[in-house]
């Protein structure tokens, strides 16, 4: 079960964020994610964080849930900021230890690059945590409908994406079970030369592939049995509808982006 990481699957709650139309949620979320790349000053960073924390409060989600979802990515960002700290060589030197020096520029880069990305990660996580996979599929379906007009399978792409989210935990459990079994048969992953290690992966990868094919077979039988025939004739339990709150959320997001840019030029 070591493979099973929290990938931001839906957490039910009653909040404005849960009720927003998934399409406006995705568009606003994308705007916030792109906007973080314009953050250059401490004031902007504080503003971005204020917005991110405000959104977490609005979502009515337990803070622990959000934290555990962003944790793996935050770990990666922390590692990156260590590189920034040591490698960026602008501004005045703060500490010099032999070949290592830490400069003011490096310190700011380390802080800013990681913290502003956390804002983007929070935005993305909130979308995943407050939107059911079905809503996500429908939203992508709708947002990609221009593709359908030029002959690309917009709905099917969205459906595949949704099934992928659904099967990640299943396949992950399977992978750790197979890893256990092959380890117990003496196949060790972390030993020997590179060639040995690559060779030791084969029994796991092939068994996992065979297993995934079995799942695919089962899934196709299930989709047939449940009369799934693509997007055309489907109805929707909760059809997507824009409400006043969606317009409002887009407007607020626009104001936020403009304010962030203005703050940067102060």
């Amino acid at each position: 079960m070591a493979f099973r990481i929290s990938l931001g699957s839906y957490v039910p709650a009653d909040s404005v964020l849960h009720r927003l139309d998934p399409r406006s949620k995705i568009v606003c979320g994308l705007a916030i994610m792109v906007s973080v790349f314009f953050i250059r000053t401490p004031l902007q960073l504080a503003f971005g964080w204020a917005i991110a924390l405000g959104l977490v409060l609005l979502s009515h989600l337990p803070a622990g849930k959000v934290l555990s979802s962003i944790k793996p990515i935050v770990m990666v960002l922390l590692a990156l900021s260590v590189f920034n700290l040591l490698l960026v060589d602008t501004g005045s030197t703060l500490v010099a230890l032999g070949p290592l020096h830490i400069t003011t520029g490096g310190l700011w880069a380390a802080v800013n690059y990681s913290l502003r990305l956390v804002v983007a990660v929070i935005a993305a996580t909130l979308i995943l945590l407050t939107t059911t996979p079905t809503q996500l599929t429908d939203a992508f379906d709708s947002l990609m409908s221009p593709l359908t007009h030029i002959g690309l399978p917009g709905h099917e792409i969205a459906m595949v994406f949704s099934l992928m989210l659904r099967f990640i935990p299943t396949i992950a459990d399977e992978a750790s079970a197979i890893l256990d079994a092959q380890t117990a048969r003496g196949g060790a992953l972390a030993e020997g030369s590179l060639v040995d290690r690559v060779r030791s992966v084969i029994p796991i990868v092939i068994a996992l592939l065979a297993s995934s094919l079995r799942h695919a077979n089962g899934l196709s039988r299930a989709l047939d049995a449940r009369c799934y025939e693509g997007g055309a004739a489907r109805s929707h339990w909760h059809p997507l509808e824009f409400h006043a709150r969606d317009g409002l959320s887009v407007a607020v997001t626009c104001v936020y982006v403009v304010a962030l840019l203005v703050l940067g030029s102060l």
Partner: peptide, 19 residues
């Protein structure tokens, strides 16, 4: 595991009728 297509119980039950 192979028959459930979404990650919310009620949405999954609605999948067939939607189709």
């Amino acid at each position: 595991d192979d028959q459930i297509v979404t990650s919310v119980v009620e949405e999954d039950i609605a999948f067939g009728p939607e189709n």
